[in-house]
């Protein structure tokens, strides 16, 4: 194995993501079947797996420069062949935002779930329009798409906290022992702490590349913390004294009728 391989794959962030994925994998497959079918457990696992795949794929693109240059050329980017922003944009800014919106949706009451559905549809349409119209090319930084995604996650967090204040099921719980509360809080911090830096990334990268790297560390550290909370969610049935059960909102017909009574 050459030094480029080590340079690409041996990094504290990537190693942490790999370890967290293994932990998540073990805890997820130790869950009983009915729990594995519950979105409260499989969605965090899906996000964890997805992060593991795209981060390692990102490392591979840094290792295999020819492959990265070919993809860039295919996307029309011959100016910066060493960029792998296309992967970061698709995976981190778009798909992961949608997955987080789906995750938040599982903790909301049925009427608020519908708002999230529309937000996801809106996000998909806007991002594809911005990308294919050339306003924000896929191979360059996408501050508008990031800002829209971050705002949607912030609005979804607002909906979650509103539900926490008004829903009787949430009022009967202790939020500090609810994993959804901690996931939501960390998501809120991640998006708010990286908001300004991500939106002004191009400017900062041109003028202060070292500062960008420092600010990027915040994103990485928050990313690790978020994944840790996701693992806690998957492993939560093993620690019943530590965490409270989530108030799950079913959308089936009979429940709707009962609530209408």
């Amino acid at each position: 194995m050459d030094s480029r391989f080590f340079q690409a794959f041996v990094d504290w962030y990537l190693i942490s993501i790999d370890i967290l994925f293994v932990l998540g994998f073990i805890y997820f497959f130790k869950l009983p079947k009915d729990k594995r079918a519950n979105s409260f457990y499989w969605l965090p696992f899906l996000i964890l797996t997805f992060t593991f795949i795209y981060e390692n794929f990102g490392a591979y693109t840094n290792y295999n420069f020819e492959f990265k240059a070919r993809v860039n050329a295919f996307l029309g980017n011959t100016e910066f062949p060493n960029y792998n922003l296309w992967l970061y944009n698709i995976a981190n800014k778009q798909i992961k935002t949608i997955l987080y919106l789906f995750l938040i949706k599982t903790w909301l009451e049925p009427p608020k779930k519908r708002i999230i559905n529309w937000m996801i549809i809106g996000f998909l349409i806007i991002t594809q329009f911005l990308q294919f119209s050339g306003i924000e090319p896929i191979y360059l930084n996408q501050p508008i798409i990031f800002a829209i995604g971050a705002n949607m996650v912030l609005v979804a967090s607002g909906l979650y906290f509103m539900g926490m204040m008004t829903n009787e099921k949430y009022l009967a719980t202790n939020p500090l022992r609810l994993l959804s509360f901690w996931m939501m809080t960390f998501m809120l911090f991640t998006y708010s702490l990286t908001y300004i830096a991500s939106v002004s990334l191009t400017y900062l990268y041109t003028n202060y590349p070292t500062l960008v790297i420092s600010l990027f560390q915040i994103d990485l550290a928050m990313g690790i913390l978020n994944k840790l909370i996701l693992i806690m969610a998957i492993a939560s049935p093993k620690f019943p004294n530590l965490f409270e059960e989530e108030p799950i909102f079913d959308t089936n017909e009979s429940l709707d009728i009962q609530s209408s009574l």
């Binding site: 809120l188 911090f189 708010s192 702490l193 908001y195 300004i196 830096a197 002004s200 900062l204 600010l215």
Partner: peptide
Amino acid sequence: IIFSTLFLGGLMS
């Protein structure tokens, strides 16, 4: 940029 980031973080806390 730095103060806005810190302000947003503080606001969220």
